[in-house]
Design a protein around this nucleic acid. Structure first.
Lengths: 253, 253
DNA sequence: CAGCCAATGTAACAAATGTGAACAAACTTC
DNA sequence: GAAGTTTGTTCACATTTGTTACATTGGCTG
């Protein structure tokens, strides 16, 4: 059930059986569900839980006073929201389900137990936090410097790898439950322009989009177009137990 | 010497004399210096230290293959770069001095000591990490949704508050050692357009820029124009020792 | 299978921002 | 204080992206 989290962590550390058992204890509070479009947390709420996505996609977003909306990040299965968020008095953003969603609400106590009893989980959690921060920085670069088509391509490359990291999708296709309006809000452009860009990507035989799945026809070309360099995802380093061969097959920058 | 850090932390927790002593121990490795434009860390380096800015400004940035450069964040006095960065094998970005800079290189051991011996410092460090992440998210919103003039205004509002948080600047003016080219790289626009926008802000009597200091003539107006809401900076909450009156005088959203 | 609604696609036009180059002003350095 | 360098300013024009409004498609639901 929390397999995606375990899969992700194992890109970085080798977990013991005890570690896995500990992680499964995160589910002690029971699995929660949300429908597409439903909010899990709202800006202004007092933070109580750390959330862990089990199945489906969610997104973090902010809304400006005049209604403009920005998607700040996507949560895939295995993704955790901010550790120690309890320290803050109020949420500064909202989290909502994109698809129908299963997730866990993890209490402070459970989180404390995890880090107290396993140094590997502790460092995996820190690694995850650092990678999340790196992803947010890369989004800054994406929005600041890349053109519309590069931005969309870059996002696709990132989501492809992140999907594969948690054991979803295959060599060429992966679940992509994101509509053009979402892509627009994530990349800071209009839906009209997202549409233009996607058509361009299709006409260049880079991607193919069907039934909520994205097929990558030419990862090399897409990577080049996006100026994508996966170093910020900090894959399979240090204590990871997998071989280089098992790592997502996307060109390094 | 590490006053800015202490000042910042005290927006969140009340530090004991022992805490302050502990924090001063961060300087045990000696103060480092860098000249404007000099890099402190480069993308690809193996991370060894946590850095703490003592005096002057620095910036985090990334360069794309084709030379485009994005400033990802500014480091003011009292700002720390990523805790536990040692877990990663390679830096995914660079850090450089904007002005002449004094800073500390803090070892893993010293960081561990801090969190081991003071629960207050531990939570202040976490708070700082959470706020840094929130700032990065806000930059995502800024670049994704706000227009050029809103972006620049928003950045100015943020830097004004952050400056005041660490005890620099006064009610209306603060040190602003950022040239238009830097502003351009931080806001994802060209210097020409930054120039146009700054002229507009001046002609609307919102700001005034002289000798590396920025004077804010109408914080209310600037805040409104920028759609700025300081909630993401998570000021003066929970265990903070200061009264609401002492908090930076910027309109809440 | 009809009917519906969300999602995607199109087109003409408008606005914001980028480009490249030249020049001016402000600082540094000697 | 003269020369040189960095920073700021301006201009004419190009390009990208946004806006508005509407058409089409596709998947559900009854």
């Amino acid at each position: 059930m929390i397999t995606p989290l375990i899969k992700k962590f194992e890109w970085f550390v080798h977990l013991s059986d005890d570690d896995r058992r500990l992680l499964r204890a995160m589910a002690s509070g029971g699995v929660q569900h949300a429908l597409p479009g439903e909010d899990i947390v709202r800006e202004g709420d007092h933070p109580v839980f750390v959330y862990l996505v089990l199945d489906g996609w969610a997104h973090r977003y902010k809304v400006l006073e005049d209604g403009r909306r920005q998607i700040i990040s996507f949560f895939l299965p295995g993704d955790l929201c901010d550790l120690n968020i309890f320290l803050l008095k109020e949420m500064d953003h909202s989290i909502g389900a994109l698809t129908s969603l299963s997730y866990l609400r993890v209490t402070r106590q459970v989180m404390d137990t995890l880090v107290e009893f396993s140094p590997r989980i502790r460092s995996a959690l820190w690694w995850d936090t650092l990678v999340s921060a790196a992803i947010q920085r890369e989004w800054t670069v994406n929005l600041g410097q890349r053109s519309a088509i590069e931005r969309v391509s870059h996002l696709i490359c990132e989501l492809f790898i992140r999907t594969r990291m948690v054991g979803l999708g295959d060599d060429q296709t992966f679940p992509f439950p994101v509509i053009q309006a979402d892509l627009a809000e994530a990349t800071g452009m209009t839906t009209v322009h997202v549409n233009r860009v996607l058509q361009e990507l299709r006409s260049r035989d880079l991607i193919l989009f069907r039934r909520k799945r994205l097929r990558i026809l030419d990862i090399e070309g897409l990577t080049r177009l996006a100026l994508f360099n996966d170093n910020y995802l900090h894959l399979g380093r240090e204590g990871a137990h997998m071989d280089a061969d098992d790592r997502p097959a996307v060109g390094m920058g």
